[in-house]
Design a protein around this nucleic acid. Structure first.
Lengths: 116, 116
DNA sequence: ACGATAGATCGTGTATCGACGATAGTCGTT
DNA sequence: AACGACTATCGTCGATACACGATCTATCGT
């Protein structure tokens, strides 16, 4: 394989640019997706990761590993779960990967929660 | 035992009154709690349960069982998880139990999510 | 006191999570 | 071509989720 399998969804374009403008009116998400995203956020470490990504706009895996008291493989696993829930996007940059929050999904999630 | 164990938190007062007024400015919740609540919402069935409770203000377990395609024991289990996350409160009424959403927690959760 | 009913809990099986160390793949550098 | 840095994946483990049927408990009518 050329690309690490589950990275098929990794956009190759400049998807991690500053997300300042996220004016997405956003299509509402169904309960299935809502639950999926909620589940992804259902772990303190993953919430911290999201916070870090939001604070720094973008982050290499290594930076996250450095800022969290967990093994590299564990962080990578959390990133995988967040990726599967579409909450973050990874962009391969040379030998490393930079992650950013998928504002589209996060916004849709916020909306769905607010509308509960 | 007189009370079903994990019901120690079941308020005996009229806690399930119409939650119209939920003006709680609400103390912010920490990431631990946020994750806990998110996890509790991380299942489509539990989201449906919350929706049903919100729509009907209050609900007997039996009504929920009737409206969901799952065994009674399974619903009861989901209710337990929601209870543990403080998202709902159960009030024992004679031989049955009526549940309602804990607006305080739900509001705090909405706030925390919106503030992400 | 008895039986019916509602609902919580128990016991089981399967699946997924969360953590880790070890391994492997990819790229830039030497 | 080989090396080192960076990450994803694998394999494993214990713990927890999820679903079910069976059981237990508590309450209400009679």
């Amino acid at each position: 394989m050329t690309v690490p399998e589950s990275f098929a969804n990794a956009t190759s374009g400049p998807s991690c640019q500053v997300p300042e403008a996220a004016p997405t009116p956003g299509e509402p998400i169904d309960d299935e997706t809502l639950a999926k995203v909620a589940k992804a956020l259902g772990n303190p470490t993953r919430i911290k990761i999201i916070r870090l990504l939001l604070a720094q706009h973008t982050c290499m895996t290594g930076e996250l590993v450095a800022q969290l008291p967990l093994a590299q493989s564990t962080i990578s696993e959390h990133l995988r779960l967040l990726r599967e829930a579409q909450l973050i996007q990874g962009e391969i940059e040379g030998p490393r990967t930079s992650y950013c929050v998928n504002q589209r999904i996060l916004t849709a999630f916020k909306r769905a929660v607010a509308d509960l």
